[in-house]
Amino acid sequence: MDTSTLPEENCFRSTLDSFCQSLVNAVRVARMDEHGEPAKMTQHELANRSGVARSTIAKYVAHNARSTGEINPDLETICRLAKALNVPPAACHAAAAAEFARQVFPRYSSLEN
């Protein structure tokens, strides 16, 4: 485990990365087009459905693993976005929780296979 960064900092960063990537993925298939096929929801449409500012959504969508800007969505924001996208809020953090567990408990990682 990298000792230069505390596990809590790794958890926050991986949770944020996971949330932003999950948001991008969900937006890609959040609505149906006129033929019943999954279609991308615009940031403007998501803002209208969720009540979250479009500029805030743009920050989340633009975030990547190398981003240094501070963004920290609160639970209410995550739940509002999840509801507008018709996905469970927990799905936004599942990958981050698994990664954190692998970092904190590396000897148990081999048990997953």
Rank of each mutant, 00 (worst) to 15 (best):
R80T: 11
S50K: 06
P89L: 01
A97D: 08
A82N: 01
A90N: 09
D74G: 05
M32E: 07
T56K: 11
F100S: 05
K83G: 07
F19C: 14
F100A: 12
T68G: 08
A62Q: 00
E112I: 10
L81Q: 09
N86V: 03
A82G: 03
R102L: 13
P73R: 15
D74W: 08
T42V: 05
Q43L: 01
E70G: 12
R54Q: 01
L16Q: 00
N48T: 01
K40N: 10
C79T: 07
I57K: 02
I71Y: 10
Y108C: 02
A97H: 09
R28A: 11
N25A: 15
T15V: 08
A84K: 00
A94M: 14
E9L: 07
P38C: 02
E112W: 12
E70P: 08
N25K: 15
T56Y: 13
A62K: 01
D17M: 15
L111V: 04
N10M: 13
V24R: 15
A91P: 05
M32C: 03
V29I: 14
E76R: 13
Q21V: 15
D17E: 13
R80I: 08
N64F: 13
R28Y: 08
H93P: 01
A96V: 05
N64Q: 04
R31H: 11
K59R: 04
A58L: 02
I78G: 07
C79R: 10
E76F: 12
P7Q: 03
A53P: 08
E34T: 03
V24W: 04
A47H: 12
T15K: 13
G36Q: 05
L46D: 06
A39R: 01
S109D: 06
A53K: 14
R80G: 03
A91N: 12
E34G: 01
N10Q: 14
L75F: 02
T56D: 14
A39W: 02
G51M: 08
E76V: 09
S22D: 14
S55P: 04
G69Y: 15
M32N: 02
E37R: 09
A53H: 09
S110P: 06
R31C: 02
P88A: 02
A90L: 06
H35N: 08
R107G: 15
G51A: 09
E112K: 09
R102W: 11
T3V: 01
A47G: 07
E76M: 12
Q103C: 13
S110I: 09
R49Y: 05
V87C: 03
Q21C: 14
V87Y: 00
Q43S: 05
E9M: 07
G69V: 13
G36S: 07
S14C: 05
V29P: 07
S18M: 10
E34D: 03
V27C: 02
R80H: 10
E9S: 07
S4E: 14
I57G: 04
C79M: 11
T42A: 01
S67L: 03
E37G: 10
V87N: 02
A62H: 00
Q21G: 12
P38F: 09
A65V: 06
G69W: 15
C79E: 13
T77M: 15
A91T: 10
Q21D: 08
A82E: 08
V27N: 03
